[in-house]
Every structure is written in structure tokens, then in C-alpha cells.
Simulated assay, not measured.
Amino acid sequence: MDKLSVMQAFRRIVERGSFARAAEDLGVSPALLSREIKLLEESLGTTLLTRTTRSMSLTDAGRLYYDEATGIIDAVTQVETRIREGAGAVRGHLKVNASSSFGQTVIAPILPEFIEAYPDLRLTLSMDDRVVDVVEGGFDVSIRIRPVMPDSALVARRIGTMRQRVFASPAYLKATGVPQAPAEIAGHKIVGFLLAGHLTSWTLTGPAGTTTVDLDPTVRVGNSLVLRDLLIAGQGIGTLPDFVSNEAEARGMLVRVLPDWELPAPEIFAVTASRLGMDAKVTAFLDHLRAALRP
């Protein structure tokens, strides 16, 4: 028995004073309504309506049930109305998760404008270089950078693509020489990214096709911002995503090694737990983020 539907039917019967008129309003047969009310009375163990061929009246229990059911139905209606009215509003608490490097270099710069645009929104940005459980962490969206997203119950929407290239400082290359081919990289000091799938093996694509270089990084770190700073300090050669390398390269602090070669381009995914679509606050945030990712 759908209790809320039965409550609504009972209310309509009382207010219309007739099973027939209530049935017409609800688009069902009077016999069906009569059967539902009988089942309701049986479940409650009492009579709610006394009926004769000419009249119908509420018992004391029926009056109590009517009053309480009316309050419940009105409360549910008010909640539904508030939710519908607020469905397109950017308000509430938005919880975002991202890696430290992406959070600091891409998300942080867009936050002031985003926060000012939506003053009714509360925001939590959690940064973690390891993959977190979106559901357990209570996050509305997690930004993940992967070549592909594994199959799971989560929903991954691609919002951009990054480029992954090889870098070193001018001072390091001046001291050690500039590699002229991928195979020559193995003879250099390597700074590796612990959480990358290419920590000890770089697959590079360039003018001569695709080649794989096996490596044994001298230094291994779990944060690409630290990796960038080590490269700037002349500690070796390493790979960086463009959102981490762009500024250092523009300022001449890093230069590309084998500029015609690069690693496979990972995708940037927005991961959510629900397949029912994103709410307004997540949509607004991702719109801001997509704009920041455009070339």
C-alpha cells in the first residue's frame, strides 16, 4: 500500500464528500477507492468513515486521520515546491576534490571570481594527490586526470585534455648536454612522479613514431609541484603536465627536452557519484573550470 497515495485519496474523499466525486477527480473507479479505504481501515484496526446509501461521515479516528494526513501531505508538497524552485539555484554546500597540483595551479585562480558570482554558495576544496572515494568523502565532484577512467559506478565526464612533456632546467642541460633522441634520456638523472603510470617507463611519440624508454628515477616524489621545483633547481629531467609547466617554461626556468616528442595526453575528468545529472552548483563550477582550461 502506498500510504501517501492513500492519504491523498482519503483527503479527497472527505473534502468532496463522495467516493464517486473523489474517484472522478483522481481518475480512478469508485470501487478502487472503496477497496483502498477498506484496506487502510483494516491496517489501522478501526473505522474511519461510516457510510450509508445517502450519507458519509467521519468517525473520531477518521477526523484524527484526516487532520494528520492533511498536515503530512501539505508538508510534502511544500518540500517538493522548495526543491523544484531551488533546483536551478546555485546555493548550498559544494564539496570539490582535486589533486594538489591541479587544485593550486588551475582551480585556485578561478575561485575568487566563482565565489563572488555565487554568494549563497558554501565551498569546500579538498586537495589530495591520491584517488579518494567520492561517495565516502561526501564530494559532489572530483577532478581526476587519467588516460582513461576505469569502469565503475561513478560517472566521469571529460572536461579537457592536458599535454605531458619532458622538461629540464637550462642549467642542467648546459652541464650535462641535451639529449638528441629518446634513448639518450636513460643516461640522465631522472626525477619521477610516484603516482604516475609512467614512473619507470616513458612512452614517447614523435617524428619517428612511438618508442618506450625504461628508466630508474634517482628521485621520486608524489607531488608534481615539488617535481617541477626540483627540475627548476637542476636536479634532472622529468615529465610535467602543461598546467604545471606552462609558467616555468614561459619564464625560461624550464625548457622542453626533445620538444618534438611527448607522452600520451591524459584526459581531465569530472567524476560524480550520481547518474541523474549534475545539480546547479556542480554545473556552475564545471562551467568556470572549463573556461579556465580553454587554450
Rank of each mutant, 00 (worst) to 15 (best):
G27L: 04
A196I: 04
W261I: 04
T59G: 02
P264M: 02
G236M: 08
A22H: 01
A208E: 14
S57W: 15
G192L: 07
F243I: 06
T77D: 11
R163M: 02
T203K: 00
R251L: 14
E68V: 15
V106K: 00
A284R: 01
P295M: 05
S245V: 11
S29Y: 07
D74W: 12
L32M: 12
R163I: 08
M253H: 14
D133W: 06
E15K: 06
F114S: 06
L173D: 05
R275Q: 07
T218Q: 12
T200F: 00
T105W: 05
L231I: 06
S29T: 14
E24N: 10
T52E: 11
L121F: 08
R82C: 08
V6E: 05
S152Q: 01
S169H: 02
I73P: 05
V141Y: 03
E24S: 13
P266I: 00
G177A: 04
F193K: 03
T211V: 12
A117H: 11
R21Y: 10
V226C: 01
G71I: 14
Y66F: 15
G236K: 04
S34I: 12
A9D: 14
A61Q: 13
G222E: 11
A87F: 08
E116F: 13
R35A: 11
D129V: 10
V141D: 09
T212S: 08
E80L: 10
R63Q: 13
P147Y: 01
V79A: 15
I143R: 01
L49E: 03
L123N: 09
V6Q: 07
T124S: 15
V255G: 04
P182R: 00
R275H: 10
V148Q: 07
V282C: 01
E247A: 13
P264K: 00
K281M: 11
T205I: 10
L173S: 04
M56R: 04
L94W: 03
L289C: 03
I185K: 04
E42C: 00
I13S: 02
L263C: 02
I37A: 05
V131Y: 15
R157A: 14
G45F: 06
L125H: 07
S224F: 02
T50V: 13
V134S: 08
A265T: 07
N97W: 11
G138D: 09
G27S: 05
M127Q: 15
L49R: 00
F19G: 05
E36N: 07
G197F: 03
L227E: 04
A168Q: 05
L26A: 09
L125S: 06
A69P: 06
T200D: 04
L125P: 02
A208V: 10
T211I: 10
T200L: 03
I83C: 11
E113Q: 12
T50I: 13
G62P: 02
L64S: 15
P112F: 14
P241A: 09
K95P: 01
G277H: 01
I143G: 01
A20F: 05
P150S: 00
T70H: 13
T59D: 03
R165P: 00
A22E: 06
T52F: 08
A75M: 12
G92T: 08
T52G: 10
E15W: 07
T205R: 10
I73G: 09
M1Q: 10
D216V: 12
H288Q: 13
A75L: 14
T205D: 13
F102L: 09
S18G: 03
G277N: 00
R146E: 11
T50S: 02
F139A: 09
K3Y: 09
E113S: 13
G222N: 11
E136Y: 09
A292F: 03
S57A: 13
